Amino acid sequence: MRLAFVSPWPVARASSWSGVVPHMVHAIGERAVVQVIETDTIGAAPVDRILAGSIGRLTGSTYLVGQAVPTAQRRGRHLARALEGARADVIVAIAASQDIAYLPAGTPVIQVTDATPAAIAGLYPMFRGVHALSRWQADHVDRRARNRTYAFAVASEWARNSLISDYGVEGDRVSVIPFGPGIVPGTKARPPMDGRTLRVLVVASDWERKGGDAAIEVARRARAAGLPVELTVVGEPPRPLPDWIASAGRVARSDMSTVYSAHDVLLELAEANAGGVTMTDAHAHGLPVIATATGGTASIVDAGRSGFLVPQGTDGFGPALEALSALSRPQVWEAFSSAARSRHGSTLNWDVWADRVMCMARRAARLA
């Protein structure tokens, strides 16, 4: 089978889409003949560049160039030219609605995504304060992309439910296929929990959205209650951290596997999460996860087995503290760590993801 793999990011860049794109194209490439089409170099249409600047200056609102009609038309023309002569049976589009919206009818498209505009509206900073003209264009582009899509491979039930309830997409067109990790574990065996301290990790590149302050408060309460908790923060917090917290700052992706393996629990009290790749990374390294029940987290964490899901906001502080208390007991931690590794092995890995996407592709090719 011949597939066209369309990516708005460079597929060789380790950080593309939280690090999942290189793993996606590699796994698909082991199962099909793949032509990679990268669209990241396609510049915005001149009119969109002008509108982005003028709307920002005059209104203070955001104009989403990547979701604007003229730029989407430009990207669609580029993709159509790139597909000429490719003889692709199916197109696998990675979060590329802006690329396929104006693609002429023909080769079936499988769209891979972790969210919908309706699901993330207001949750992510880039989607706040968007100008009305830009919202209309984004909705128009997304609608055309949905109509051009044969089937969707989404990362969570949350995304699937939004496609069905918010947009009326038929349920048999949407398959939930969770992503594998962006940080793949090394070959070195993970050491067991030492039983003396619970080494808690917070990965918060986007401090506010990832709930950095909430995680620190829960860890503070745990220590005040006498729990043997040590906290490490990866990311750049907006203010100096207390002395009892180990602040790692920004960590190179090549070093993150070592960081995960040096800790026992991932604490992620995020306000919003779509694909939740850090949680998938954690499970791949045998870390139970304590996370807020938001977005796609329930499709990653097997609540009560591989981790705990807690309410958002201050209502979640108590349950998160209880979860830390439970995981501070070595036997409990070992059971949850084993379940996390099992979940990675059975569901949250790229072989499973690619096998299921290939099943969708073969079905689309047969029915085309």
Rank of each mutant, 00 (worst) to 15 (best):
A80V: 00
A88G: 15
R49C: 05
A101Y: 06
R57L: 12
I55S: 01
V90G: 03
G43A: 15
L64K: 03
A96I: 04
I91S: 01
D48N: 10
A68V: 02
L64N: 01
L51Y: 04
I37F: 11
L58W: 07
A52G: 12
V65Y: 09
T39E: 09
L79D: 02
I91A: 05
G53F: 09
A86C: 13
A44L: 11
I37G: 04
V69G: 01
A52K: 08
T62G: 07
D89L: 14
G53Y: 09
A101F: 07
L64R: 04
L51G: 00
I50K: 11
G76F: 00
A93W: 05
R77E: 02
Q73V: 00
G53D: 11
I100K: 02
R75V: 01
Q73E: 02
D48I: 02
A88E: 12
V47S: 12
R49Y: 06
A82I: 07
Q98W: 04
G43D: 12
G60M: 08
L64A: 04
D89C: 13
R75G: 00
A93I: 06
T39K: 04
G60F: 10
Y102S: 02
P70V: 09
V90S: 06
G43T: 08
L83W: 13
D40A: 12
T59N: 05
R74G: 01
L79N: 04
I55G: 01
R77Y: 04
T62E: 10
D99Q: 09
A101W: 03
T71N: 06
H78M: 11
Q98C: 08
D99I: 05
I42C: 04
T39L: 09
R77G: 01
G60Y: 08
A45Y: 08
V36R: 13
G60L: 07
E84D: 14
G76T: 03
V36E: 15
V92P: 03
D99G: 07
I50D: 06
T39M: 11
T62I: 10
A72N: 04
I37D: 05
R81Q: 14
R75I: 03
Q35R: 13
T62S: 11
R77F: 02
Y63T: 05
A44G: 08
T59I: 06
